[in-house]
């Protein structure tokens, strides 16, 4: 027997997806409006990761002699997905308060406003992957058939960001500190995740530490991204992949339940 709250959550999500086209309209608008009035416009999508790549290149290749053979591809293949998750969750956190005027004026399932953040950031993320191209030329390598691994990786990270986004969006209505807390949390998470360093570096810590480390779902998830994008990377161990998938589904479920449960209270507080 499924508890009533699950049915409520399913109903809430179904209503949300019936209004998916609204989310799409708003997301398109957000993308259009983002760089309006700026000189570089859409190129900012590439400028930011490129600039960060050069910074990390300087620190880890020039100074610390990082010896990964395709280091910059490796770095970007981890950084871009992580930034996608980061910016989606931050954007979702303020989505309900940001769209409060609309929410108070006309009926629209509130899930839609979390979807807006996910959609616009996803679009942005997929395009920013183009940044990898010059680095393939630089290292003289090409992505192989394994690039299809992007599909499950994208699905998982999108689901994850939606789930976390739902949770934070709802929480932020009650506790306005959430948005500041989230920013800090992601900064810590960034260092706990192999983005500018490799997992191999931690092998001397022993198997227990590695197991614990892999409980961070972003570790195996970035592993899939790297397997798909970085030549010579191997897929994380199957049990790590399994645990990661379970964690992401669980997090999404918790986020959706939390959102559905608080939806009616939250809308009254906007």
């Amino acid at each position: 027997m499924m508890p009533a709250i699950l049915w409520q959550t399913i109903g809430s999500q179904r209503r949300g997806f019936q209004y998916f086209h609204i989310a799409w309209t708003l997301a398109k608008r957000e993308l259009k409006g983002r760089y309006r009035g700026s000189w570089l416009g859409f190129f900012w999508t590439f400028v930011e990761p490129l600039l960060l790549t050069f910074i990390f290149f300087f620190i880890f290749v020039v100074i610390f002699r990082q010896d990964h053979q395709n280091y910059l591809i490796y770095l970007l293949a981890g950084m871009l997905p992580f930034f996608f998750l980061n910016s989606t969750v931050v954007k979702s956190t303020v989505s309900l308060s940001g769209y409060a005027s609309l929410i108070r004026q006309v009926y629209c399932p509130r899930e839609v406003f979390v979807m807006v953040g996910v959609l616009s950031e996803l679009y942005h993320f997929v395009f920013s992957l183009v940044v990898l191209t010059p680095f393939y030329f630089y290292y003289g390598v090409l992505p192989s058939w394994r690039i299809i691994g992007l599909i499950p990786a994208l699905l998982l990270i999108t689901l994850f960001s939606y789930g976390l986004g739902l949770f934070c969006a709802s929480l932020n209505v009650f506790v306005r500190d959430t948005r500041f807390f989230i920013t800090l949390l992601f900064r810590m998470w960034f260092y706990l995740t192999p983005i500018f360093y490799t997992v191999e570096r931690l092998h001397n810590l022993g198997p227990t530490a590695i197991h614990l480390y892999n409980l961070n779902p972003m570790v195996p998830l970035l592993g899939i991204f790297r397997w798909a994008l970085v030549p010579g990377e191997s897929l994380p161990a199957p049990h790590f992949l399994g645990i990661m998938t379970a964690e992401i589904f669980l997090a999404t479920l918790v986020g959706a339940v939390f959102f559905a449960r608080n939806d009616n209270t939250a809308v009254k507080m906007l």
């Binding site: 708003l26 769209y99 005027s101 609309l102 108070r104 004026q105 006309v106 009926y107």
Partner: peptide, 11 residues
């Protein structure tokens, strides 16, 4: 719905 300020318009 036409609520007081702006009829379901997003600013």
């Amino acid at each position: 719905m036409l609520m007081e300020l702006g009829a379901g318009f997003h600013p």
